[in-house]
């Protein structure tokens, strides 16, 4: 029974992702709405990051902050490869946690 419910949850989620692709018009949407959609990626990323990063470790918010600061620094300083940024930030978080 629970399995069926999970499958239904999966179908709901899938339809949300699939239907817009299916309905995509041959002619791209231009103008205002397109500007709005262009802004979405950054808006989604930003709202996923904050406040989530402060809550990633409920007991020690510094864990998330350390990872965040490391990531920002590395991205700003140089063209560090993306996976190195992630490894370094995670290590920083682990370090703070252990200390």
């Amino acid at each position: 029974m629970t399995i069926l419910l999970i499958a239904a949850m999966g179908i709901v989620t899938f339809l949300l992702r699939f239907t817009p692709l299916l309905l995509a018009k041959k002619v791209p949407i231009e103008g205002k709405s397109s500007g709005f959609l262009d802004n979405l990626p950054l808006a989604v990323l930003s709202s996923l990051t904050i406040p989530g990063i402060f809550q990633v470790d409920a007991e020690t918010p510094w864990v998330g902050i350390a990872a965040g600061l490391t990531a920002v620094l590395l991205v700003c300083i140089r063209k560090v490869p993306l996976f190195l940024v992630i490894v370094a930030s995670t290590l920083a978080a682990l370090l703070v946690k252990v200390i």
Partner: peptide
């Protein structure tokens, strides 16, 4: 939780540039 910060590092690396 400390390991999970990797997902946020990815997000930040995508945002900042």
């Amino acid at each position: 939780p400390a390991l999970n910060t990797s997902l946020y590092a990815l997000l930040i690396a995508l945002i900042v540039p």
